[in-house]
């Protein structure tokens, strides 16, 4: 995976250097697929936010909503491109009856989600 990425970068540099004037530079759009590979693996601050998410989930289940919100806000600052953070926050707001906020958070989370998290976010909408 990594070697393929490096190879891709190298080739991209080669192409940009070799492409003649009649060929458009690569379009800014990264990919045509509906769910392109999100860089979450390298961008997400996994371990750091995971412990906060676990704690926040437990706080929500215990009814400590203020505490859960504080933890999730902190997790979002550390790891803003992690769809799970938005999912947990949407669930928290849905639990407290703030359905409109929950819906918007879930909608925003869809810009960063991967795999089953996307499905779970759609369920909140």
């Amino acid at each position: 995976m990594v070697s393929r990425f490096i190879l891709t970068l190298g080739v991209a540099a080669l192409v940009s250097a070799c492409a003649g004037p009649s060929v458009q530079a690569p379009a800014p759009e990264p990919a045509a697929s509906k769910e392109p590979e999100v860089r979450e693996q390298t961008q997400s601050q996994g371990g750091a936010s995971q412990s906060l998410l676990t704690e926040a989930r437990q706080a929500r289940l215990d009814g400590a909503f203020d505490k859960a919100e504080g933890l999730l806000l902190r997790a979002q600052r550390i790891d803003p491109r992690n769809g799970v953070v938005y999912l947990e926050m949407a669930r928290l707001y849905a639990t407290t009856g703030a359905t409109e906020e929950a819906r918007r958070i879930a909608e925003r989370g869809l810009l960063y989600c991967t795999g089953s998290t996307c499905e779970e976010l759609r369920e909140v909408l």
Binding site: E35, P36, R39, Q43, R81, L110, L111, T114
Partner: peptide, 8 residues
């Protein structure tokens, strides 16, 4: 981080 949203 470079700009990289998931396509809506």
């Amino acid at each position: 981080v470079p700009l990289a949203y998931r396509v809506p």
